[in-house]
Design a protein around this nucleic acid. Structure first.
Lengths: 258, 258
DNA sequence: GGACTGCCCG
DNA sequence: CGGGCAGTCC
């Protein structure tokens, strides 16, 4: 079975790319980020036409995450649910196709040292606490999303240019390794230990033309799913075409399960 | 020779309609309104590609009028030039193809009784004074534009719905008749004395679907040109297609002259 | 409804 | 650069 993650940067302005992509690639499960839409404004009809069901947590203007699947989806949680006063729609936790599937949109972090950066680090700590509290490394768990973390310099086309930016600081990379130590595995990297795979090119400064890419969209999976991993990749063509998202979809393929 | 007038409602967002329309219909002279662009931001290169030269008076956000032609254009005036402190770009007066061609964008007028309505009536009085001062009924003069006047109930699909709106008040119709009495002739109406011809359908309230149209875009011509009139019409298809202007082009055909 | 103006965000 | 927003205009 195939799982895909895509930061669409507004689901409404990406519908004309999303619908054909779903129809052409038919992943079993899709997680989306940056819907930039409230639940009531989500284009349910257009997605239903493709044969996908939807579970989402929406928000006006910013954030918003969803799980799409061709099988029924049971929502387990729509927030980190830790009592924090945080209105940002950045996580949805679902049961679908025999898996526990989570869509996450990790805060970008603005600039190192900013309030936004503190929020990013805090959010990653809260996510780790949420894993400790509600998940187990032995269950079939896949967390896909825009992590806003390039785990290693191998994940950055021009590491010197991105050194100490919020996508690459030692602190966020340490948080990433903490998640891996908990029992999550960077699926695409496990399949392609040495490959330069990028999932995001900045709209600004002609990032795409200069292939100034980073790998910041990931699937993190627990051991039971890591053992079923057979393939992984990036649909780079989605970053080309017109009116693209700044992110390309990242997919993984698991043996069995449909 | 053929003259066309079109309120494009932003020349930049209408380029993909304007360029093919110029290429397909090749009018000798085109007058445009609501460019919504400063001179420096006008898409000169794209228009030049079609073989047209341009004279324009631009303004940020609002108004802006132009004359396009495949022959050289000599600009005579870019305002009513009556000493009024009026920064709005609503008139350009040119010499082209042996004619005097003027592009006008008459103020809409908001609501009857409003300041905007007073400005509309005042602008029409100033236009009449400008005619008296700078033009003569015996010269070959054609004034095309968005007049924001439906001269008669015949020019309104649902006259009761538009009665006493700023497009139809007795006062603006009186101003219109004053221009006709000066020596201008409503060209499209002269060619089609009884026809219901509409040039504008409101974006709102499904104006197009209900064919709730009005004829507010006109060519006014002096006697020498009236005597050469052979045809007139509206390119209604331009109001359909996607991302249309709310106005359709209105054209007239003169015998001789190219 | 669909242009525009800023402005915020990544 | 390319999403979103509110506010203004027609």
């Amino acid at each position: 079975m195939r799982l895909a993650t895509w930061n669409v940067n507004s689901v409404r302005s990406r519908l004309d790319a999303l619908v054909p992509w779903l129809a052409a690639t038919r992943p079993d499960v899709v997680v989306l980020q940056e819907l930039k839409v409230q639940q009531g404004e989500f284009p349910f009809a257009e997605i239903a036409m493709t044969g996908y069901q939807v579970a989402l947590v929406g928000q006006k203007t910013y954030n918003g995450v969803a799980v799409l699947a061709r099988q029924p989806i049971a929502v387990r949680a729509t927030s980190l649910d830790d009592g924090a006063d945080d209105p940002q729609a950045r996580l949805i936790d679902c049961e679908v196709a025999g898996l526990r599937v989570v869509s996450v949109y990790v805060p970008n972090g603005g600039e190192p040292g900013s309030d936004k950066y503190a929020y990013k680090l805090q959010w990653l700590r809260r996510l780790r606490a949420w894993l400790d509290r509600t998940c187990a490394p032995c269950e079939a768990l896949a967390i896909g999303g825009d992590w806003n973390i390039a785990p290693d310099d191998l994940d950055v086309r021009y590491p010197a240019a991105w050194k100490d930016t919020v996508l690459c600081t030692p602190e966020v990379r340490r948080a990433w390794r903490g998640l891996c130590q908990w029992g999550l595995c960077d699926a695409a990297r496990a399949v392609h230990p040495e490959a330069r795979m990028f999932s995001w090119w900045d709209y600004r400064a002609a990032g795409l033309e200069r292939n100034d890419g980073l790998r910041i969209d990931h699937w993190l999976v627990t051991a039971p799913l890591r053992d079923r991993l057979v393939a992984a990749g990036v649909d780079q063509d989605l970053r080309h075409g017109d009116k693209p998202s700044d992110h390309a979809p990242v997919w993984i393929e698991l043996a069995g399960g449909g």
